[in-house]
Simulated scan of single mutants.
Amino acid sequence: MSVPDLTGRVALITGAGRGMGAAHAAALSALGCRTILVDLDSSVADVAASLSGAVHVIADITAPTAADDLVAFASALGGLDILVHNAGLMHDWRTLAETPPESLDRYLAVNVTAPFALTRAAAPLLRQSKAGRVIFISSQWGQVPDGHSYGYMVSKAGQLGLMKALAKEFVADGVLVNAVAPGAVATRMVPDDRYEEEVAAVPLGRLGRPEEIADVVAFLASDAASFVTGQTIAANGGALIVGI
């Protein structure tokens, strides 16, 4: 298989200031893609400065005008081909009894409502693209719940439902919509006091690297995945083989 070539395409990646988001940006940039990196954290400027053809926007994707503003920014650059919904929140590690109902609101806002709004706003540009892609970074916990962090689990499962609905609607336009469901990855999402527990739950015996998830994203963004839509690719070191 030849190396994918994304030259001339534009990707917008949320949560791109560090961790997996920064890795996605680096992977797509290395394939020739022009990247728009979005994050609340000013560290996104440093990530953008390190990549050829990258620009950054410091923004809260849950803000009322964020979706329209980001799509207008992309349009000014010439369009949008690839939309990567990577922004997320850390686990809150609470049981049902410890979880107030309102704590779900923030998770749903970041993981479901904001991606819905941004995809809706970007739909005309994605439909105009000859290689439109929408990629959700969900989680293994969206596939199999672990009995804690209810906001995280519910919102990640919601992402997968949204992905399937979008895939069905966009298929006639040739826009492909998929998700990646990582397991435990070596980012700040795994706190130090849970590190050993998370490693022990992975059959491969280690945490994933952000670059390994980014490779899956690059595949889904490329022409190599031109017959793939409505799918969730589990990148979890074998966790679902034995159950979580």
Rank of each mutant, 00 (worst) to 15 (best):
S2D: 12
P4F: 09
L6I: 05
L6A: 10
T7K: 10
A11S: 14
I13L: 00
T14K: 01
T14W: 00
R18M: 11
G21K: 13
L28C: 05
L28W: 05
L31Y: 03
T35P: 04
V38H: 01
L40Q: 13
A48D: 10
L51V: 08
G53D: 03
A63H: 08
A63G: 13
L70V: 01
L70E: 08
L77A: 08
G79M: 04
D81Y: 01
R94E: 15
T95R: 14
P100A: 15
P101S: 15
P101A: 15
S103C: 03
S103D: 12
L104I: 09
D105N: 10
R106T: 15
L108H: 06
N111T: 05
N111H: 15
A114N: 11
F116I: 11
F116E: 02
T119Q: 07
A121E: 02
L126H: 05
G132N: 05
G151E: 07
S155F: 09
G158P: 08
G158H: 05
L160I: 15
G161L: 10
G161P: 05
L162C: 08
L162V: 08
A167Q: 07
F170E: 04
F170R: 04
V171G: 05
D173R: 03
G174Y: 03
G174E: 05
L176M: 14
V177H: 10
N178Q: 04
V180L: 14
G183E: 08
G183S: 13
G183F: 13
A186E: 15
D192Y: 00
D193N: 15
Y195F: 14
A201R: 15
V202L: 04
R209S: 14
E212T: 02
A214M: 04
F219N: 06
L220W: 07
F227A: 11
A234I: 14
L240T: 14
I241D: 11
V242Q: 07
V242F: 09
I244L: 15
